[in-house]
Simulated assay, not measured.
Amino acid sequence: MFTIGCHLSTTKGYAAMGRQALAIGANTFQFFSRNPRGGKAKAMDEKDVKQFLELAGANGIEIILAHAPYTLNACSADGGIREFAISTMEDDLRRMEYTPGNFYNFHPGSHVGQGVEAGVDYIAAMLNQLLKPEQTTVVLLETMAGKGSEIGRTFDELKLILDKVELKDKMGICMDTCHVYDAGYDIVNDLDGVLEEFDRIIGLDKLKAIHINDSKNPFESHKDRHEKIGDGTIGIAAMERIINHSALRQLPFFLETPNEIEGYEKEIRILKELRK
Rank of each mutant, 00 (worst) to 15 (best):
E196V: 09
D176H: 08
I201L: 02
D199Q: 03
D192Q: 14
I173S: 02
L195C: 13
D205V: 00
C174H: 06
I202C: 00
G193Y: 07
L195Y: 13
G203E: 09
S215A: 15
H179L: 07
V188M: 07
D214C: 11
D192Y: 04
F198C: 01
C174W: 02
I212M: 14
S215N: 13
I210R: 00
A209L: 03
I202M: 01
L207K: 01
T177E: 04
R200S: 14
N213C: 09
F198L: 14
S215T: 10
D176Q: 09
I187E: 06
G184E: 11
C178I: 04
L191P: 09
I187N: 10
M175Q: 10
G193R: 07
L195D: 08
H211K: 02
I210D: 07
H211T: 03
E196N: 15
K208T: 01
L207H: 08
A183T: 07
D190Q: 15
D192A: 08
K208F: 13
Y185Q: 11
R200C: 03
V194A: 12
K208H: 15
I187C: 06
D214A: 13
E197Y: 06
G193P: 12
K208D: 02
N213Y: 10
F198Y: 14
D214N: 08
G184H: 09
K206T: 03
I187V: 15
I212A: 13
Y185G: 09
M175F: 05
H179Y: 05
L195H: 07
D199T: 02
L191A: 14
H179G: 05
D192C: 06
T177Q: 05
M175A: 11
D186Q: 09
R200G: 01
I212V: 15
V180F: 09
A209P: 08
T177M: 07
I212Y: 08
V180N: 08
D186S: 11
D205W: 01
C174I: 14
I187F: 04
P218H: 10
Y185A: 06
S215G: 04
N217L: 05
G193V: 06
Y181Q: 01
N217C: 06
V180E: 07
P218F: 08
D190V: 02
E196R: 13
Y181G: 00
L191F: 12
L207I: 03
V180G: 04
H211C: 07
L191C: 13
K206R: 15
D199C: 01
F198N: 00
T177W: 08
I201N: 00
K208G: 00
L207R: 01
D199K: 01
L204S: 11
D186C: 06
V180A: 05
I210H: 02
I173F: 05
H179P: 07
D214E: 14
I201R: 00
D199G: 00
N189E: 13
D214S: 11
Y185N: 07
A209Q: 05
L207D: 05
E196G: 00
L191V: 10
N217H: 14
I210C: 03
D214K: 08
G193L: 11
A183C: 12
F198I: 01
I210V: 15
I210A: 04
S215I: 01
F219V: 03
L204I: 15
G203V: 11
N189S: 15
D199L: 02
G203Q: 11
F219M: 04
D182L: 01
D176P: 08
L207G: 03
K216A: 12
E196D: 15
Y181E: 00
N213I: 09
E196W: 00
A183P: 09
G203Y: 12
V188L: 08
M175T: 04
